[in-house]
Computed example of a mutant assay.
Amino acid sequence: MADPTLEDLQTQITALRDLITTEYQPPSGIEFSYPVVNQPMNDEMWQYVTLGLGDGVFDEGGQPYWVEGRENAGNTLRITVSTTTGTAQAILRGFYHRLTEDKTFVVPGVMTKTVFHFCLTYNPVGSGGTAGPISLQMYAGTPPTTQGRFHIILWKLTREPNQLLTKADLVRVRPKITPMITVNGEADRPEPSTVLWGSRVLCTDNNAEYRATGSSGDTGGPTTWTPVTDPDWVEYGDTPTYKWVGHGYRRAIWRRGKTRKLRGRITPVDGIEFSPTSDAGYLLFSLNEGDRPVQECRFMTAGVRGSTGRNSCSVTIYKNGEVRAWPDRSMSWMGLDGIEFDVE
């Protein structure tokens, strides 16, 4: 048999390519459905097929996509992988993202007040690349939504002119994917350590619902099933700015109907005391949308400097969810006990 010519080889290559690649033919008309058997879908179709999965972080514990290592010298910070799994995973518009090591960002000094958004960004331009369409990005200002881009906002950092990076207000957003499970009875619930943070299980025998949580925030994996129908206190966990002082309650929220309560003691991570401050006060944290008050409300709480010297602190909760505090004197830790308000 004679050796194939270049034309013969090209014909064979073309035939093979037709077997392993597909060309998308967009449907036409006022009504259509998909998937169509033996026909491909484009990325837009895939996004709608998977829309019901939601967008968010898969949290197995260990604080995936956390902020660590704020450094003033180089104006840098890191978005980290989980301390327990060594990775971080999320889903956005039906596409999966996986971070295998910490990623460092440079947050430049600013001339005017600037809000930096740290996001997982879906960009269809990257669909054909080896890294895929999702990447971890930082934006100075509002994340762009042109050209089919979508985002999961993980953190928001507000930096003022001439402000150290460690003093910039840092707000966690970081939405999570939380599956729903149904079992017959409480004995049939899976071990909480085997499910994602916030997963819910409904027991049909007694119509009781539980949520996978832990006793020390989300620094580890979930350790217990917390009843939703008879709610317990839900801890927030430490942040890169504030941590538990080491005594009293950890920072937590209690929910029942439209009533919310806060409690806990916090202290700055950098060890610098709270002190009487400007009109902005200290941004302690931001409440989720379902936990925000009907109207702005104010409370007086307590704080202590060292082992003695009890002082008072004014705490305001705004309709946008910001919890800000104004101490009347210097204090090493601040309390949130006794705060109670109604939500929308």
Score class of each variant (00 low, 15 high):
Ile177Tyr: 07
Glu160Leu: 10
Pro222Lys: 04
Thr182Ile: 10
His117Gly: 00
Asn206Pro: 04
Ile152Ala: 02
Thr112Ala: 06
Ser199Asp: 06
Thr166Trp: 00
Pro175Glu: 08
Val195His: 06
Thr223Phe: 07
Trp155Met: 00
Phe105Tyr: 00
Arg174Ser: 11
Met138Asn: 04
Pro192Met: 14
Arg200Met: 07
Val171Tyr: 00
Ala131Met: 09
Lys156Thr: 01
Ser216Lys: 15
Asn123Val: 08
Thr178Ala: 14
Ala140Pro: 09
Pro143Tyr: 05
Thr194Ile: 12
Pro108Ser: 09
Tyr210Met: 07
Glu209Ala: 14
Leu202Val: 08
Trp197Thr: 02
Thr114Asp: 12
Thr204Lys: 01
Pro161Cys: 02
Val125Thr: 12
Leu165Gly: 03
Arg149Met: 15
Thr130Lys: 10
Glu160Gln: 14
Ala140Thr: 03
Thr223Arg: 08
Gln137Asn: 04
Met138Asp: 04
His117Asp: 05
Leu170Asn: 01
Arg200Asp: 01
Val107Ala: 12
Thr130Leu: 13
Gly148Phe: 13
Thr114Ser: 10
Lys176Thr: 13
Lys176Gly: 07
Pro222Glu: 04
Ala168Gln: 12
Pro161Ala: 07
Lys113Phe: 03
Trp197Met: 07
Ala140Glu: 06
Trp225Phe: 10
Gln163Pro: 14
His151Arg: 12
Arg174Tyr: 07
Pro133Trp: 10
Arg174Leu: 03
Thr166Cys: 04
Trp225Gln: 01
Gly141Ile: 09
His117Ile: 06
Cys119Met: 05
Gly185Asp: 15
Ala187Gln: 06
Arg174Val: 05
Asn206Ile: 08
Leu154Ile: 08
Met138Thr: 03
Thr166Ser: 07
Ser135Tyr: 09
Asn162Lys: 08
Pro144Gly: 12
Gly126Lys: 04
Val125Pro: 01
Arg159Asn: 05
Tyr139Ser: 03
Thr223Tyr: 00
Thr213Ser: 13
Arg159Gln: 04
Met138Trp: 02
Thr178Phe: 05
Lys167Pro: 00
Trp225Thr: 08
Pro190Ala: 12
Asp205Gln: 13
Val107Gln: 10
Gly128Gln: 10
Phe105Gln: 09
Cys203Phe: 02
Thr145Arg: 05
Val107Ile: 15
Val183Gln: 06
Ala131His: 09
Phe116His: 13
Leu170Ile: 01
Arg174Thr: 01
Gly128Asn: 15
Arg149Cys: 04
Phe118Asp: 12
Gly217Thr: 11
Thr166Pro: 11
Arg159Val: 08
Gly148Asp: 00
Gly126Asp: 07
Asp188Leu: 09
Asn206His: 05
Asp188Ser: 13
Leu196Ile: 11
Gly109Cys: 05
Leu154Pro: 00
Thr219Trp: 15
Arg200Lys: 10
Ser216Trp: 13
Pro144Trp: 07
Gly220Leu: 03
Pro222Cys: 11
Val106Ser: 03
Gly185Ile: 07
Ser199Arg: 04
Thr145Ser: 14
Thr223Asn: 09
Leu136Trp: 03
Gly214Tyr: 09
Thr219Tyr: 14
His117Lys: 14
Gln137Gly: 00
Leu136Asp: 01
Thr182Gln: 10
Gly126Glu: 01
Arg200Ala: 02
His151Lys: 05
Thr204His: 04
Ile177Arg: 02
Ile181Asn: 06
Asn184Pro: 02
Ile153Tyr: 05
Ala212Val: 06
Trp197His: 10
Pro179Asn: 15
Ile177Thr: 11
Ile177Glu: 05
Tyr122Ala: 11
Leu164Ile: 00
Ser127Asn: 13
Thr223His: 00
Phe118Ile: 15
Thr112Trp: 04
Met138Ile: 03
